[in-house]
Structure formats: structure tokens, C-alpha cells
Design a protein around this nucleic acid. Sequence first.
RNA 1: GGGCGCGUAGCUCAGUCGGUAGAGCACCGGCCUUUUAAGCCGUUGGUCGUGAGUUCGAGCCUCACCGCGCUCACCA
Length: 577
Amino acid sequence: MFAELARGSPELSFPQSGFMSDTTTEKTGATTSDTKGAAPAEAPAEAPVDEGRILRDRREKADRMREAGINLYAQRFDPTHSSAQVRANEASLVKPAEDTDSAETSESPEPAQIVRMAGRVILRRPMGKAGFLTFIDESGRFQAYVKRDVTDAAGFELFKKMLDVGDIVGIEGPIFVTRKGELTIQADRLTLLTKAMRPLPEKWHGLKDVEQRYRQRYVDLIANPEVRDTFRQRSAIISSLRSQLDARGYMEVETPMMQLIYGGAAARPFETHHNALDLDLYLRIAPELFLKRLTVGGFERVYEINRNFRNEGISTRHNPEFTMLELYTAYWDYTDTMTLVEELFRKTALDVLGTTEIKYQGNEVDLAEPFVRAPILDLVAAELGLGAEHGLAWGLDSLGSVIDLCIPAIEKIEAERPEAKSLADAVKAADSADEALMHLFEELAEPGIVQPTFVMDYPKSLCPLTKSSQADPAIAERFELFCCGFELANAYSELNDPDEQLARFEDQVRRGERGDAEAMKEVDHDYVTALQYGMPPASGLGIGIDRFVMLLTDSLSIRDVILFPLMRPAKGSTDRS
RNA sequence: GGGCGCGUAGCUCAGUCGGUAGAGCACCGGCCUUUUAAGCCGUUGGUCGUGAGUUCGAGCCUCACCGCGCUCACCA
């Protein structure tokens, strides 16, 4: 590839270099005035008043450049090297002799190789008849050296008079090393590729304002290199998961995001409407019921990585649209899925970070260690100090038995920990014994789980899509993976008995009628029909991709791993856009 | 939705006791042919989130509202 780079060839194309080009002049000149004239008919000619002096200056400068025949928005450019490629090939690219005078004597044994690079100018250091500019391309920063004696006249004029930090430029010339030892491209030719009309954030503090970073992520990405790294890692994580699943024989599918009946999770949906069919639809809260229909159809290993939408509050761990990996494996139960999760997490960390040792907000976790497997009730009993023969069980008829077992221990805890106040009240106010115990788990045990832990064996009454255990019918074969204090995955052995599924759906609808906003509103009869055709025993898994990315990138907020998190519209004067 | 905090120049931030708004960088002008946040000299730039109120006088005090962050509730 580099061999094609004609050594010092005069024919290297420089498509829009034409400061001097008459045709370019005419064309851009005409375009400019036409554009102005053709603007929305009665639109006021003046730009918005609040633009500020810097923006007005930039506009006036752009007008002057257009009048001089400069194309502010070039058609194309052919970079031969990224900054990373130049660094990787330093030995073969750097001019043999640094002595600039000898170049004039035309005796240089080998003409230096000419390269072309492109990127956004982030620093300018003019020094009279020469100067440096630092630019970034996707692989990093690099500097160019501009000098009146070597740079084309139009390029030098551009650098001296018109170039702004933020502009995107193309540079052509040989690579050399400066006296201070920095790898540099000598700009034999310098061309404007895109004019920036707005200034970049301050050059060493960057962009700090969190709100602006989220609202204008493009600026955040320019100004904060570590943000680029985070989103590169996010992409690499998803890519790693896909290749692992593909290698294991899973097929990626897409199922409906607009659904007539929503299901597959306990959550409130977004509502929308199809005009032509005059049909009310929901944005999906989970793809589960459709993916399982596919296992009925004979696809034994399927997965989907895509968005779900839940009409709930926003927090550092919740965005209304979030990305989930959901997969289903025929003939497995939830213990097989536990093994899969461990292997997926390990391999992804290795692929993306090169290690299984993770630091998250001060916690250290090694994914190479076997994940703990712990029944919920054992964790609750341990927190309450009840010992091995704790007597806790799912499906107890009365709340009274839970109260008898737990309240003495809870009261002791409340006395010791002020933040645990009202725990006893919450237990007494629960709708069922199962909910009381789940509440105890969430309050007492869940926040303290740092090492990766499969919390397993949930109450059947709260898991309408999960198959029960043979050993104890009150137990649902379900686990959730917790790590560093938050939930990362949820999985179970799938309920595939159509009669039982119908009964559980009907129970859900009754709950909804009693006022549970997160229960199903309507039985999905087609899903029951699918089960009647026979679904193989199967285990399903959901991994919250955003949270997994948070864990691997040490991000405190889900908004730091979602490119464009949902924000309220900016109103009034805080609107900077 | 509740609680706490924040909002000042394009960016990062000061702003005392209520006395009429500042710095650095950026911008603009000048000098400078291997710099490194280049340097030197000189300018310019403000609806102090919005709107009321108190006051002779409000960036500062009071109230309401808007937006953001953290947190609680809810959830994955």
C-alpha cells in the first residue's frame, strides 16, 4: 500500500487545493451568493443577535475567504496515513538527513517519502515565517510544520491569516523529526478541508460542563480524548460479545420494537400510534416473548443486541432507552447459562482490556475467579444472622411467618444502623411474604455485593415467565448477576408449559387491574399459542450492555457510556445550541 | 415527584460586607523560520440561567420558574 505512494510524485492529487484556481473561484463565489439569495424566502437577513462577537468574526472571515475563492467545504481528500500509521512506520518514513540545507543541493541520496494526512486543528503556533499546528485524526494527535520556504503559497497564506483552531485540514509532505524530537509532517502543501464556524473549548481545560458534554457530544468527543476511548471500548465490548456468540453458534436476530402487547419485564411502556392502521402500539420493554417464539420455530440459539424502552425515572444507572443483550439457548437450564455468563464476561474483559482484573470506583474485581453462586434466602439469612437452619422459604402463605422469623433480627439491625430505619415497617406493609423477603434482600444484601455473584432462586410468585424448580415448586429457577453493587444480568430456565403460562399471565393482568402499573395489561394469547406448539426446554439471559460497559470502563454514570442520553429540552438562555 | 447543590465572557473559573463585573486561554491587531499549553506587545469581548420583589443601589438578599448534577422513590 505504501509502495503506491509515489515518491515525491508531482501527481499526488490534491483535489481542492485551489486557492489560485479560477474555476474554483467562480464556482464557490457563485454558490455563496446563490445560497444567500435562496435562503427561506422572507427569512431575516441577519444572523441571530445572540451569536456573539467571535461567531460574527468567524462569519465575516468566511465571507472574505469565499470572496478570495477559497472553498470552505472541500469535496474530498485522500489521506495516505493516519497519525498512528505514521508513528508505526517512523523508521521508513523519516527523512534520512535532517539538515535542511542539503536538500537544496539536490544530492539527497533518496528523496523522502511524501505522505498525506488530514485532521482537525487543535493548536496553532505561528512564528513569523514558519509555524506549527497540531491536529487530531481518529487515531490521535500529530503536528505539522509550516514554513514559507517550503509550503505552497496558498497554504502558507491560509496558515498565517485564515486558519482557526477547529478547522479541518489536509497536509501533504515528508515526515521528519524536530530538534525537540517530535515526529512531524512538513507541510509542502496545506489545504482547508472544512471551515469551523464555532470555536473549540479551551485548549487545556477542555469541556467540563456536564450538561453541554451530554447535549453536544460531538464537542465532548473533540475536546476530551478519554471520552473517545470510552466509546471505542463500548464498541469493542459489543463487538467481542457478538463474535463470541457467533462462534458458539448463536444467530443474531431483530424482533419488533413496536408491539401490540408489551411483555417480558415488569415496567411501564412508552406508547405510540400507527396512523395508517389507526393502531395504538407500545415500544418494547423487552424482546423476550418474540425471541422465545423463535425457539419454538426451531432456532435453537438466538440473540439480539438492541434497545429497550422503559417509561421510568432517570438516574446514574437508568436511561429510558437502554441496550440489552438477550439470548436463548434450547435444551439448557439456568445453571448452564451461569457458566456461559462467566465465560462471556471473562473473554470480553480480556478482549477489550487485556486483563480480567477490573477496577470499578475503587473496588477491585477479578473476573477470572469463579463467580459466587448464592441462593437469595441464604444471603438474607446471613444478613439477619439467622444461621444455616434459617427456616426462610418462598411461597409462605402468611406474612406473619416472615415477621416471626425476621423481625427480631431486623430490630437489632435498625438499632445499629440508622439508615436501616423503617425496614420492619416495610416488611409489615408488604403485599406478600415473598415480597417482604425480596425487600429484605434488596435493602440488606444487594448493595454490599462487590465480587461477581449469581444471586439465585427467586420466588415463583414474582417471576411469571420462569420455570419452577423440581425440588421446590415455590422456587423459580432464576438468577441475577450482581457486581460492584449493581445488577448486570438476569437469567432463568424458561417456563414452557402453555397452561401454566396462561395462568401466570392472567394473574399478571389481575395485578394490573388492581393498580400495579408495571404488570401486563393484556394476556399475550399468541405467545401461549406458540407454547402450545411446543417450545424446547431453554434458558434465557439478559445482560444490560450499558451497565456492563460502565463496569469495564469504570464509569460512574450510565450517561457516560451512552452517546446521546435523553435530556430535557434546553430552554431559555441555557440553550447553547 | 421529594431533598441537597450548581448556573458569571466562546472555554475554565474568581467575584469580599449589597456599591454598578474580573483573570487565564480563545478572539482581533503587531513582532517572531524547529515550537510543545511556544513567546513578547497591544486591544476587544457580559441579558451574571429566566422573571418578579426588597433596596437609593442586586452577580450577591427574598420568591417563583427553567436546566443540569448528586441523592431518595421506581426500575434493569
